[in-house]
Design a protein around this nucleic acid. Structure first.
Lengths: 342, 342
DNA sequence: TTGTACGCGTTATCAA
DNA sequence: TTGATAACGCGTACAA
């Protein structure tokens, strides 16, 4: 039956004989109190069992220290790892993260953002692709996009063109007869589109003709697996058995599935297939055969994202709030991690 | 230079000629206004561009709608999937999730919880193992533990004993000569300990002598992989080549790595190994060879966790707050998913 | 170095 | 059906 007695500044003010202001100062400007009085207040805090209320604090000073994150899903290793890296930034910055799982419906995600605004988030990290950056920009919240279309907002992306080039060059050097890309459909505004152009460019430079297979990949793991199986069959039937087929897939998960199909059919990984994934997530490490992949430096991307976001947040908190003149776009160079599949 | 003008109830009260109270009612008890006046206020809202401030609301009514989540990591598929399922509950319950990544240091995790308390979370979901349930209970926050020690708090766990039994029985039926468990060190209070006892019991029932290999698995993927490789070598050298070795591992990720080691050595998955994992996460699906595993019904666990948490939260919000007499522990039955490895 | 008085944006209580 | 007023817990000018 013990009642929940919330101890407030008023209580500890009464207890110590100071005013609420002094108590407040104890937390925000400790040095302005004498050591003796600091101790008095500290004692009162302990005795009365004070627990701070940051919501009240936020209401008073406007700094929520909240960052909203909208992330498509966590079954793709890439997003899970990125989220983990972002969350880990708490220790450095002290921001708290309100996380929403995007669900691809514009209206719903819009509602998520409204909710986040209602909680006075100071910043927003968007990994979901659903809402155009133009609309996001209009919210007037410091925002950073990671690996998505971001014309009107700040962004961190891997240099996808470079990645595409690296993959193509590696496959060509590896003696591939056929150069095949497997990817999803996405608009040219998507940063991932750069991979396609980069891949194609590198091929043309060597006077080679690349092939692009695009498919609709839905949300569930099973259906993706199914689709990959179909694509493998298609490739395996269409190209001559003795050709060396170089296949560059949209991410490690897809690539890993592709490798699995190859193994299912050929038992051992044959010389006639070269496979390259993208991201270098743990999916690449878990792959049955060491998966060659284009690595995104995830840690660096997460760090830079937080730095860029923090910059905007700090600017906005100044006495005369500032804004970036125009969105900053940071491109991070990928690197090729050569393993067994290419 | 457009100034950030925050529109408040006061503004729309002035605009419409009503009082703040009436405006508040518009949101919380719409029907108590005439339709006509509802429309007036709705118009004012649109015209002035009102955005709600839930922080102020929370300060006034005490309901933050926050749930804190403390999760060990997201590189293990199990946690990532569970987090995704939990986050998805927003649509059903409307709770917002403040997510912290645990880091195994008691002091640090304690600080996380203090921070969560400062934001007046209404509930807490703990997947991390660091802080004993007794201490967690003392925080007096509605709490649910998922798959961890939870003597003094509510919990959702898979029936680990049952899982261990199923694995043992399946391996025995499969004609295994040796019955080996690979697991981490954990205290008997850990729910996962039940797997060991369940496995052993089932073995003894059939007059078989199980073997337990325990090892310290650290945090990074590489080191885990290394450790699994060592264990595989150890097993492969120690047991006769022609014996059928049944190996039951702590989770799908470990099992998948183990399978990978087998393949590395034997190219094809041999008849002399039977492998069973645990969880049935995507790691099991991604495994090179279809991995037999003990499935945790994750969706059901997440749903029940939210339901149990919500129950406690609702009880606490009553006019005369109630509490569960004693912690509720829900055990969910696992199921064996037979694939190719056993 | 400390205190007074008011504001932050909403809800709750009581009255009309 | 509506309104006045006091909370909620803390920060911040401004004054002392």
């Amino acid at each position: 039956m013990a009642k929940e007695k919330k101890v407030t500044f008023a209580d500890i003010a009464k207890y110590t004989g100071f005013s609420k202001t002094t108590v407040s100062r104890f937390f925000n400007d400790r040095d302005s109190l004498t050591l003796e009085n600091q101790k008095k207040i500290q004692d009162a805090l302990d005795v009365l069992g004070y627990q701070e209320n940051k919501l009240a604090k936020v209401l008073a000073n406007g700094k929520s220290e909240f960052i909203g994150i909208i992330i498509p899903n966590l079954y793709l290793n890439y997003y899970a790892e990125m989220l983990e890296l972002l969350l880990s930034c708490y220790d450095q910055y002290g921001y708290k993260f309100l996380v929403f799982r995007a669900n691809s419906k514009e209206e719903v995600e819009r509602a998520y953002i409204r909710e986040l605004q209602a909680y006075k988030i100071e910043g927003l990290i968007v990994l979901s692709h659903t809402i155009p950056s133009q609309e996001l920009a209009a919210f007037q919240i410091p925002t950073v996009a990671i690996e998505r279309e971001a014309e009107d907002i700040c962004s961190i992306c891997v240099d996808n063109e470079e990645g595409g080039r690296m993959a193509a060059e590696h496959l060509i050097e590896d003696g591939c007869d056929d150069l095949i890309q497997v990817n999803t459909f996405f608009p040219q505004s998507s940063p991932a589109y750069g991979r396609i152009t980069g891949f194609n460019q590198a091929c043309h430079k060597k006077s080679r003709q690349p092939v692009l297979i695009q498919a609709e990949f839905s949300d569930t793991y099973e259906s993706i697996q199914q689709k990959i199986a179909e694509i493998f069959e298609q490739i395996d039937e269409h190209y001559p058995k003795d050709h060396i087929k170089g296949v560059f897939l949209a991410n490690d998960t897809y690539a890993s599935m592709f490798v699995k199909q190859i193994l299912r059919k050929y038992k051992e990984f044959p010389d006639t297939y070269k496979v390259i994934g993208f991201d270098n997530t743990r999916a690449a490490q878990e792959c049955a055969v060491g998966l060659t992949t284009i690595a995104q430096p995830m840690k660096e991307m997460a760090d830079q994202a937080m730095e860029l976001l923090n910059l905007q947040m700090e600017m906005k908190k100044k006495r005369i709030p500032e804004t970036l003149d125009k969105p900053v776009h940071i491109k991070i160079s990928p690197s090729l991690v050569a393993r067994e599949t290419a």
